[in-house]
Each structure stands twice: as C-alpha cells, then as structure tokens.
C-alpha cells in the first residue's frame, strides 16, 4: 500500500535484469520498508548495488512458459498487495533471422502473447485491489514498421494497443497504466547495434519514466521530442519514409 507520501511499498519487475527497470527502481520514491520482486531468467547469480537497499525476492520465470509465469504472478500477489509493476521483459531478436520460423515465433510469443496475457492478469489483480500502477515498456519501433525490426516492432505495437485498451477499462478505478515508448536506448539488449537518431541512455529514460509515473501519465516518450517526431513519421507517405528506412 502506498503511504501518505505516495511511496511504493511492494514493486514487481518482470524482466529483472532490465537496465531501464533497475534505473527506474533507483529513482522512484520507495517506502523505507519497500520489497522488490524481481522476475526473469538466470537471476540467481545476478547482483546489483540496489539490492543492498531493499529485500529483493528473485523469482525464476521463463516468460516463454506463460502458464507457469501466471502461477508465479499469482503467488506474488497472494503474499500481499502490489503497488507497482514494471513490465520490462523483451527479446530483441536477430535482424537477419527475424523471419526464420522459430525466431519469428519466439519473438512474437514472448514479446506479444506472453506479455499481453501477463499484462491482463496483472491488471485484473490490481483492479481487484482497487489500487496500483503498471509501467509498460513499449517502444517507438511499434509506431511504424521499419525494415530492420518490424517483427520486434509489431510485438511492441500489439501490447501497446492492449495496454491502451486496458487504460479505458481502468477509468475511475484507481489503477493506472503508463505506457513508456522509448526510442533507441543504450542498454545490454542493444549493445553492438548501430544507434538510431535521438538515442539516449537508461538514466535519461528512467528520469522521464519516474516523472510520468508520479503524474500517472497515459503515454510518455523518451526522449520527449520523439512524440513529435513519431507523429510526423506516422503521417509521412511511404515513398518518402522508405528513403529513411535503412
């Protein structure tokens, strides 16, 4: 439960190694008795300086096994109310192999199907509590198909769409979903890739995300200028767009 300062007491991170999520955790207002539930794969030996500040429960979850993941989420919620869930897991996938059947299925099933199912489950749980916030880490890659990452992009678009639908369901019920649409972010996931224009680091993304969470914003871009850039890019005629889509 939030205290009178609006400090989060119990936080769940799906995608426990996410640089963005951990950077957000470092910055958000947490209660002195805050507890963190870190969910993801190969967390046993994963350490981070933040883990000295809070009790951290590491829960091994393979998000590709969505039914098992749901059971773990059930267990977390049955141990007490949750104030904030950061949904940060994703597979970027390989640009060269993106249309290979196995790769295609893996990216879509983890990034879209699993994430949509878990988002829906978590949202229902928060509605049952009648309080809570979700930060859904989406991407500007979902705003318009680009040649190099449209499979990743469509998976982000799909969950983004569902998150917006759930926002409408949540109206007046004290449960808020904030959709974060970062551009290219320098993280473990993107290391080695050529940076896109307006690339930023996870520190900057997390500062923007924390402000958005405080204000319970519906949608926020990181950097913020991307809201205008993406608006223009979505309107751009395809013959013009394909010249910049390299």
């Amino acid at each position: 439960m939030l205290n009178c300062f609006g400090e989060f007491q119990r936080i769940v991170i799906l995608g426990g190694k996410s640089d963005i999520a951990l950077s957000i955790l470092d910055k958000i207002a947490t209660a002195p008795d805050a507890e963190i539930f870190l969910c993801g794969r190969k967390l046993k030996d994963f350490s981070h300086p933040l883990f000295n500040q809070f009790p951290v429960h590491k829960i091994e979850i393979d998000f590709a096994q969505v039914e098992l993941a749901k059971l773990e989420i059930d267990k977390i919620f049955s141990s007490g109310d949750i104030d904030l869930v950061i949904i940060a897991f994703a597979i970027l996938g390989s640009e060269e192999l993106k249309l290979e059947p196995e790769e295609f299925k893996k990216v879509l099933s983890v990034n879209f199907l699993s994430q949509a199912i878990l988002l829906n489950q978590i949202n229902s749980k928060l509605l049952n509590q009648m309080h809570g916030q979700i930060l859904q880490i989406s991407s500007v890659a979902g705003m318009r198909p680009r040649r190099r990452n449209f499979v990743y992009g469509v998976s982000k678009f799909g969950v983004d769409f569902i998150a917006q639908g759930l926002q409408k369901e949540n109206l007046g019920k004290n449960v808020y979903i904030t959709i974060l649409r970062p551009g290219f972010v320098h993280t473990k996931m993107t290391s080695g890739l050529k940076a896109a224009p307006f690339a930023i680091d996870s520190e900057t993304v997390s500062r923007i995300a924390v402000k958005a969470l405080l204000k319970k914003k519906r949608i926020v871009y990181a950097p913020k200028i991307l809201s205008i850039i993406m608006f223009l890019l979505k309107l751009m005629p395809e013959p013009l767009f394909k010249r910049i889509d390299k």
Binding site: M1, N3, C4, M130, H131, N174
Partner: peptide, 15 residues
C-alpha cells in the same frame, strides 16, 4: 467511494 483519513493524504476506493 473514494475515501481518505483525517490527514487527507492516503486515498483509496472501496464499497
């Protein structure tokens, strides 16, 4: 209803 305590600082919704 949206309820609060005397301090009007904590808020929650219940039946």
């Amino acid at each position: 209803s949206k309820l609060t305590g005397w301090g009007r600082s904590n808020h929650s919704i219940s039946t």
